[in-house]
Design a protein around this nucleic acid. Sequence first.
DNA 1: ACGCTCCTTGGACGGCGTACAAACTCTGTA
DNA 2: TACAGAGTTTGTACGCCGTCCAAGGAGCGT
Lengths: 245, 245
Amino acid sequence: MHATRQGGWVAPMSAAAAPRRRGPRRALTDGEILDAALDLLDGGGPDAASVRGIAARVGVAPNAVYTYFPDKAAVIRALVERLIGEVDHDVFADRTRPWRERVEALALELRERLSAHPGAVALMIGGPMDGPNARALNERLLHVLTDAGLDGTQAARAAYLLIVYVFGSIALEVADGHRAGSLPPEPDRVARRQAAFAETPADRFPLSAAAATTMAGYVSTEQYLWGLGRVLDGIAAHGETRRST
Amino acid sequence: MHATRQGGWVAPMSAAAAPRRRGPRRALTDGEILDAALDLLDGGGPDAASVRGIAARVGVAPNAVYTYFPDKAAVIRALVERLIGEVDHDVFADRTRPWRERVEALALELRERLSAHPGAVALMIGGPMDGPNARALNERLLHVLTDAGLDGTQAARAAYLLIVYVFGSIALEVADGHRAGSLPPEPDRVARRQAAFAETPADRFPLSAAAATTMAGYVSTEQYLWGLGRVLDGIAAHGETRRST
DNA sequence: ACGCTCCTTGGACGGCGTACAAACTCTGTA
DNA sequence: TACAGAGTTTGTACGCCGTCCAAGGAGCGT
């Protein structure tokens, strides 16, 4: 009697619109648990978001959590789902705007949402994102691309490419520590990165050294948009090619 | 007395070309520890690559590992470095071949190496890849791009974009379970994925449903090369644009 | 032959995810 | 109104994990 399945997606266990359950009143809600998990995630990185930590934060025995979610993985999935659900669809739903603007808006919105919770990025790429909100977002992206004139196959491929780019970018940023808060305190993290940049052996890796100083000067959003621009160029060019042949 | 640093990169602790140490002979080498770690990683996913597991596999007490590496993170870093070091540079070092072919060769080679050890992908994006081998690989990529006529700034940006694409693709493939062995046994993983595809609610997400069936039919290498092609198109087009203006 | 250095080990600490059984609280029914 | 049973919460426990400490043993330099 653990969790109901629908389409491969394992939902939390709260009876949907419960008519009133049998036993004693539940002390918590799924949302409160996710709130606690997110707080811990933001405060101390993925490792801090432990079942015991969550339980302690909401003032409950560790095992009580397992009444709300079948296991820790389900908590993580639900949390990821919630974060994806916070993406504002209105920004890129407007079909009168150029499709590139719409995709850029989507990419920026997604990045902004995820950047608020860097620890969550590791959780997202730790498993498939196949919850309802993730599906809805994918659907929106496909809509934009078909609006741009791509057929079903091309839209599918382009959507996957864009997803790879967006999540890959953010994941690498977090991994490289460009984005603060990706890991627990570790106060000298920035210093270590700068040292790594500075001490790149310029004699052995001259191009890397030059590139490092170049990249270090970028506002990372700038590089993000540049890469996105190239990806969109490639998608657009491919459409033109196919149309002209 | 733990580990020597050089340029932000924390190397293993074995004295480089030791003239013969004082105490008793070391029972192991760094390499043997990494071998064991890799075996466990391949066999049981990232969780199986534990310090205790490694120690048991090489027939030694868990603590003995800490004589070779300062902590588990260092073992992981060294392992990632080794895997990156296995990439064959000769394939794309040939300056007579077109630059697109060379980048494609690099991308395919890297993917092949990482696909042999799916569990390692999560480890790579879990921290910065700033070891010597990673730097050398980056240097090679920059060479190819400058050979293609890009200036330093553009080469740096394009290289970062390509790195994002390659690692993002592989990471998402592993996360989605398209690549077997990414996690422990979990025997019905493939079945779950197929179920997720099949049970995509076609009424609520029609485009996603169509895309899912489309993507499911792809050999993933095909999609990988398609996306890479678009990225390269975008990079090439950008160069043309700048050159013509 | 001795002393010192270094490796290795047993044991322990605190933390993790989670299974089990008991205590308790409430609802539906008799 | 009383009771049965469903459902929540908790204490306890198991087997993992990464890592520290103190003790023991092995080998080189003197």
